[in-house]
């Protein structure tokens, strides 16, 4: 098999891992799995593409503006579509439908605004998408940077959970009421996590744009593969998500090279189902004790 297949798998897998981490950021304090997450990634890519290619803003300025803009959209989503549902029932799953509705609204509005044509996004200055020959593999400098940035981001996020605020997030995820009694405000953490989760999703979109182009079709694809990485890597486990992202990226690349590219999704689907059937909690999780 071509070594290229593996490098492609790792690059794609890094993106899936980032989406999975954005799921996790949002999930940990709220126990909500945002079905609009894929569209937030797409929105990040689209806004960033417009700001750089069309408005001509410098890379860093556009990057920061995109993160804040999408973060605020995440916050709005939390206020409108999630908080009222959670206020009604903590255990219900009405948010599955409301976040799905949010995803429909975002993707259709973006489609109206930007149209269906993909926008080309160039990587920041010294990096480029030109393929380099390293041994038998062909990989661009931007792709190498992406893989490294992903590793750093996962490490940073993991570190953040070890701070006091991070521990508060874990406490709320574990037991909302008990955390409340310790003076932690789950509501405020929920809003923050939606803001940060959405901003992280937007960052994923920005990072993905030079490779995948910015287009409305990014959303559903990254939603499902990001979910697969999060589930296989055990929900809430960021290092698990990283490994699972690689597993899924490489599986997909191998599947596409052995069978026809049309089987890409089917191969991932079967592999993810098989893993979940054997290990329902994912590869890196232990079954949670049920609380009564």
């Amino acid at each position: 098999m071509d070594f290229d297949v593996i490098t492609h798998g790792i690059v794609a897998g890094s993106l899936y891992a980032l989406v999975a981490v954005s799921f996790n950021i949002l999930f940990r304090p709220t126990n909500v799995f945002n079905f609009a997450q894929g569209e937030l990634v797409m929105l990040g890519a689209m806004i960033f593409a417009s700001l750089t290619s069309l408005a001509g803003l410098p890379w860093l300025v556009a990057f920061a503006a995109t993160l804040v803009a999408v973060g605020i959209i995440g916050l709005i989503e939390e206020r409108i579509a999630v908080a009222p549902i959670l206020a009604r029932s903590q255990t219900g799953t009405g948010w599955v439908i409301t976040t799905l509705a949010t995803s429909l609204i975002i993707s259709n509005l973006v489609g109206r605004f930007w149209g269906p044509d993909p926008i080309l996004v160039k990587p920041p200055a010294p990096l480029s998408m030109d393929a380099l020959e390293i041994g038998s593999a062909r990989i661009s400098s931007y792709e190498i940077a992406l893989v490294l940035i992903t590793l750093i981001l996962v490490a940073v996020v993991e570190r953040a959970y070890r701070t006091l605020r991070g521990k508060a997030v874990m406490a709320v995820a574990e037991d909302r009421e008990a955390a409340l009694l310790r003076g932690i405000d789950p509501g405020s953490l929920g809003r923050w996590s939606f803001f940060l989760g959405a901003a992280f999703a937007a960052m994923t979109g920005v990072l993905a744009a030079p490779i995948l182009y910015a287009s409305t079709s990014l959303g559903p694809d990254l939603l499902l593969k990001g979910f697969a990485a999060a589930a296989v890597g055990s929900i809430g486990n960021n290092r698990g998500a990283l490994v699972a992202g690689y597993v899924i990226g490489v599986t997909e690349a191998i599947g596409a090279s052995l069978l026809s590219p049309g089987y890409q999704e089917a191969v991932i689907f079967v592999v993810v189902l098989a893993i979940l059937l054997l290990k329902p909690e994912g590869l890196f999780g232990s079954p949670n004790a049920r609380t009564v």
Partner: peptide, 26 residues
């Protein structure tokens, strides 16, 4: 397709059916 989902949280089921429909369509 949904067998693993029954042991897990409700939203796994939602995701798996969503993915199933997408894969089936392809």
């Amino acid at each position: 397709a949904a067998l693993p989902a029954f042991r897990l949280n409700t939203w796994y089921f939602a995701f798996i059916t969503l993915a199933f429909a997408l894969v089936f369509e392809k």
